[in-house]
Computed example of a mutant assay.
Amino acid sequence: MYKFLSEDWIKAYMEEWNKNDKLKSELKDFSATIKYYIEGREDDAVELIVENGIANSAGKANGQAYDFEMWASLENWKKLATGEMGPKAAMLTKRLKFKGSMITAMKYMGPFEESLRMMGRVPTDWNV
Score class of each variant (00 low, 15 high):
I38L: 07
W17V: 01
S31K: 12
A12F: 08
A81M: 09
G53L: 02
E16D: 11
G120W: 01
P123H: 10
G40K: 06
I10Q: 09
N76P: 00
D29T: 10
K28T: 03
T93D: 14
W126M: 07
Y13S: 08
N62D: 15
K97D: 00
F30G: 03
Y66E: 08
E42K: 15
S101R: 09
K97E: 00
S57E: 15
A90V: 04
K99Y: 09
N127A: 10
G53H: 03
T124I: 07
N76M: 08
K11N: 13
W71S: 04
L27P: 01
W126G: 06
K60C: 09
I10R: 10
E26Y: 11
A58W: 08
L27V: 04
M91L: 15
L5S: 05
F68A: 07
A81G: 02
D125K: 02
A90I: 03
W126V: 07
R95S: 10
D43R: 15
L48G: 00
E16N: 13
G53M: 03
D44F: 12
I103N: 09
M1W: 01
N62A: 07
R41I: 00
D29A: 13
E113L: 01
K97C: 00
T93C: 12
I34E: 09
G100E: 06
Y36D: 07
E15G: 10
Y36Q: 05
K28H: 05
N20K: 09
L116P: 00
S25G: 04
P111I: 05
G100F: 04
D21R: 15
S31V: 12
S101C: 04
K99N: 13
D44N: 13
D29H: 08
K35M: 10
N18H: 12
L23I: 08
N20A: 14
A65R: 14
D8V: 06
P111S: 04
G120N: 04
I54Y: 08
K35V: 02
Y36S: 03
L92G: 11
W77T: 02
S101F: 04
E84I: 00
T93E: 15
A72L: 01
P87S: 02
M1R: 02
L23G: 02
M14F: 01
E7G: 10
V46F: 10
E69A: 14
K78I: 02
E47V: 12
G53P: 03
V50Y: 06
E42N: 10
K28A: 05
W9E: 01
E75T: 05
P111A: 07
R41H: 11
S73D: 11
Q64V: 13
E114Y: 04
R117P: 03
A61Q: 04
P87W: 01
E39Q: 08
F4P: 05
F112I: 14
L27C: 08
E26D: 13
S101P: 03
V128G: 11
K94P: 00
G120K: 01
F98K: 09
M14K: 11
Y13E: 11
M70F: 15
D44M: 13
P123R: 12
Y36T: 03
N62Q: 13
F30P: 04
L5T: 05
Y108M: 03
L27D: 01
V50S: 09
E75P: 00
D21G: 12
K97W: 00
G83W: 03
W71Y: 12
K99G: 08
R95M: 11
K79A: 06
D125S: 05
M118N: 13
E16Q: 15
V50Q: 08
I34S: 07
